[in-house]
Design a protein around this nucleic acid. Sequence first.
DNA 1: CAGGTTTCGGTACATATGTACCGGTGATTG
DNA 2: CAATCACCGGTACATATGTACCGAAACCTG
Lengths: 205, 205
Amino acid sequence: MTSAGSTKPPPAPRRSASARPRGRARREVLLDAVLQIVAERGTDAVTHRRVAEVAGLPLASTTYWFDSREHLLTAALELAAERDIARLRAHVERAPDDAEPVALAVSAVVSPTDPIRSSLVTTYALLLEAARRPVLRDVAQRWTAAYLDAIGELLERAGSRRPRADAELLLAAADGLLIEQLASGHSADLQPHLVRLARSLIASS
Amino acid sequence: MTSAGSTKPPPAPRRSASARPRGRARREVLLDAVLQIVAERGTDAVTHRRVAEVAGLPLASTTYWFDSREHLLTAALELAAERDIARLRAHVERAPDDAEPVALAVSAVVSPTDPIRSSLVTTYALLLEAARRPVLRDVAQRWTAAYLDAIGELLERAGSRRPRADAELLLAAADGLLIEQLASGHSADLQPHLVRLARSLIASS
DNA sequence: CAGGTTTCGGTACATATGTACCGGTGATTG
DNA sequence: CAATCACCGGTACATATGTACCGAAACCTG
């Protein structure tokens, strides 16, 4: 359904006019709107008008803060990466020191509690975009590097002899399973499978 | 701009007018064009005009064979899945009976010889589309099911006690590694890592 | 070969979209 | 207090795009 009806009945996803963010805060509100649209309808659906509408801001605000549609997309994806890396770090640091390292590593990647679920499509959309736009490769690389560092350290603590290689396989398996879940629409707890994988990798080194 | 671009160097992907396919063959030519466009520029870039241009056919041919843009995309995904499944089956059947099952399973998934490389982006882009369009889910499910069947059988032959679960992890890891390669632009032989993973899964069951 | 049906392909048109323009405005600074 | 400047937001416009239309051509079918 195109959101634009013949007349404009108040679709009112827009925040109250009094709370309208101003100044630089607007930038982030716009990027949030982009991320939401990407998650719900894909990158195709990211248009200036839709972004402005979802953000509850006038059309021109998108062109004021971002030169072009491409700029809008890349900035949004950078923000997503940044946030997810922060989430990852927090998840690891928040854990008690005596936490089981393998379980911790797995839960950092596929966390049923954290609300990464809705942003997963966005995540993988970014990775795919990076395949086509070299500008995004840096972001994509830092992103996976952050994961590999965190997981690698945990696996090493769990007794892995080649933490980096094991981390790569564990992360890859998690990504693959998640993508398959997204595509099939199923949802099951992936943690047991990934824990088994991690344990068998560590054991057979 | 519809014909040969004035500034553009001869893109000439268009087949000679005499060889212009007619009838139902046209359908497949159009879908090939869609797949090529998705691979090179993403699903955003799939427009009726571009598809027609790449296929070397008039604009109206796209609307004649496909009701809508969405129909064009879903049909293209079905074609890609169908072809890849055929490729997979051929790969497995072509192998000698005494081939090492684990190596065979791995090479079926990440084959350095077959030209799936260029179509990988397309594959994953369409899987992501399936996350958003339920119409595509059937196709996506048959696709992965075909892989799981083939790999599972090989892993069982290699001594796995839970071939299905192991196949799921192996396939997921392959997907994850491939996506990361696409995103980072790197390319290395993934087979050794996946062989190690498969062997350790089998060993630790 | 005649009639009918499918396919073809040029064209038209309403809409969606990117983006520029420009007068306004409100906060900050001197 | 007034000048300034970053910021705001309505509007305009050229282009891209989806899609319908319709006469012509090719292809059957009898």
